[in-house]
Design a protein around this nucleic acid. Structure first.
Lengths: 182, 182
DNA sequence: GGCAACTGTCTAGTATTCTAACCGGTGAAT
DNA sequence: ATTCACCGGTTAGAATACTAGACAGTTGCC
């Protein structure tokens, strides 16, 4: 929304390009670019991608350069941690909701007895965590192991992985994923 | 962009969320999400951002580039977590010792009653953590607060910060720092 | 067998982005 | 001072994203 227009305009100016010239190179009309740069419209990903192409940039590069200037409070009480799981048998409570340019996804995970994530496949990221309560069977690739409180894990998320609560009480894990693609 | 839909669908499935549930949380209609996931339309940045918000992800995280890493053994029992603290009153037990190209420093921190880190500056990084037991007074910049079990924090490590155990029992924190500037 | 509560897809209509053409302003050459 | 070339901004109309609601398939309960 906000910084996109400003950021785009700066990228263009840095290359000493006019709006019309950028339009010609990207195949997007100059009026559209003008509107985007002044935050009058929110471009589609296709449109933005075409423009960035002409600037020699990429979508990841573009968004990694955006930094919010809004400072947020460093403290998060229990109720500030928003739920991003499916509520039923598995709870994922996320930390740092409004943190600008968050680079790590920190979670407080709670699994009901018998809860199972099912197999999840490659997202390019790294995952680490400690088991706090209960007992969790973690499968990564073809390996499997039951982790007890105090134990932990660290694996590349590109390997298919799966968590299963094998205790008869709630299992809790504190985990971190970076980049926060989960 | 063809892989956007597939990527988005996988993110959603990984959380065991239905299209309708995600729609309700993001404020975007379920039909739109369906169309995006099947690459029938190219979402506007606003729309995509709203959806990613509900998934606990960010635009930079979503578009972040591909890094290939060869995984080692993903499991770490308690005794595999090496101590990097000073052993006296503060313990820092690190996860993923020999993980190649580690991008996050995951710690199990234990503070004896009264233990105090003193004021610390750090390199550019981000820190997040959950308090598990005890009570910890955290000071970041000029702000200070006592965090109880279940509470957490997330701040930019460039701000001077300090941890102090204000309970009469051991306080434990599970934390993550990225990049692992240690 | 229903019936209810899900799942994801499809369609008709609305809202928004995007384009083409036009607008006034600047500066340089004649 | 006119003309020309360029700049970015504005605006109807075309193209596309987005929404509400209907549809079919699946699961599970009675």
């Amino acid at each position: 929304m906000s910084q996109i227009g400003e950021h785009l305009r700066e990228l263009r100016r840095r290359r000493h390009l006019g709006i019309r010239e950028l339009a010609a190179r990207s195949g997007i009309s100059h009026s559209t670019i003008s509107l985007i740069e002044r935050d009058r419209i929110s471009p589609s990903v296709d449109t933005l991608s075409a423009i960035l192409d002409a600037l020699g940039t990429t979508l990841p590069g573009f968004f990694s350069g955006i930094t919010s200037v809004v400072p947020s409070s460093p403290f998060y009480s229990s109720r500030d941690c928003i739920e991003i799981g499916n509520h039923d048998s598995i709870s994922y409570r996320m930390l740092g909701v409004n943190f600008p340019n968050r680079t790590v996804l920190m979670l407080h995970e709670t699994y009901a007895p018998g809860a199972d994530t099912g197999e999840a496949f490659s997202h390019q990221a790294q995952e680490a965590g400690f088991v706090m309560t209960g007992a969790v069977e973690l499968t990564v690739g073809s390996e499997s192991r039951v982790l007890m409180p105090g134990d932990g894990y660290y694996f590349d998320s590109r390997s298919p992985h799966r968590f299963r609560n094998v205790s008869n009480e709630a299992s809790q894990i504190i985990s971190a994923v970076t980049p926060p693609t989960y």
